[in-house]
Design a protein around this nucleic acid. Structure first.
Lengths: 120, 120
DNA sequence: TACCGTTATTCCCTATGATATATTACGCTC
DNA sequence: GAGCGTAATATATCATAGGGAATAACGGTA
């Protein structure tokens, strides 16, 4: 049977994100971070679990909380366990919204590959 | 009449490009560069016209020529006028292909804004 | 041969971002 | 009040990309 392997390995790629008042608001890395925070209950553990520096993770959370009307993550310091982080409903909605956007974009890339791929 | 101004200034953004064997192959900056080379006839003038360092422009041209079966740009050194650069038909085709991809992507972003914009 | 403007190539400097380290603040538990 | 693990913050180190400057190579023309 005839192979459909591409002679020229070109592929259509891209990135998508959502901008807010200060620039980047919701993106791939931020959404994965939110999911890890939901799973682990703290910025520290979430950052470690994805090889991200705590400083960087904290900056992202702070950026999202500043740009959203209602915070995506509730932080608490001190107390039982030393404190922690909890993703709010608003944050959960943002996660779902982005994954929908992301999935639509992957479909778009596939369609473009079909449409324009052979014009190389 | 009721204003359609958005309460929350969030907008859907993104970037697209085409990968080749070595990574980035065709992208926005590279395509603009090709158009400037067509217009000016040299890498030097093309780079100056878009505030790009000659070194960077040359690297981009070299990267495209290495990754495409047939070169996108024909370079000549010495001779009348000291040499120059000329975009080939292969290069022109790549420019058109990318702009089509780019336009489709802008449409996609608009559709997503309509579809998901109010779910914030 | 001398000159010219371009391509081709090297070297260094700077700006930027990410990372690592360290310190402080916090508030509950014991 | 001591201890704990976290958030919060500041500082220093490192890596990387990009730009600028300088130089050589090239091949036509006068």
């Amino acid at each position: 049977m005839p192979s459909k392997k591409k002679e020229n390995p070109v592929d259509f790629r891209g990135r998508v994100w959502i901008d807010g008042p200060e620039g980047t608001f919701i993106g791939y890395g931020r959404v994965v971070l939110l999911e890890r925070i939901t799973k682990h209950g703290s910025i520290t553990k979430a950052a470690k679990s994805m090889q991200m520096a705590y400083r960087h993770a904290w900056d992202l959370v702070d950026s999202m909380n500043r740009q959203s009307g209602k915070p995506f993550v509730e932080l608490s310091t001190g107390g039982k366990g030393g404190g922690g982080a909890r993703v709010t409903e608003e944050g959960e909605k943002a996660v779902k919204l982005f994954w929908q956007f992301y999935a639509d974009f992957q479909d778009f890339l596939k369609r473009e590959e079909q449409k324009l791929g052979m014009c190389k």
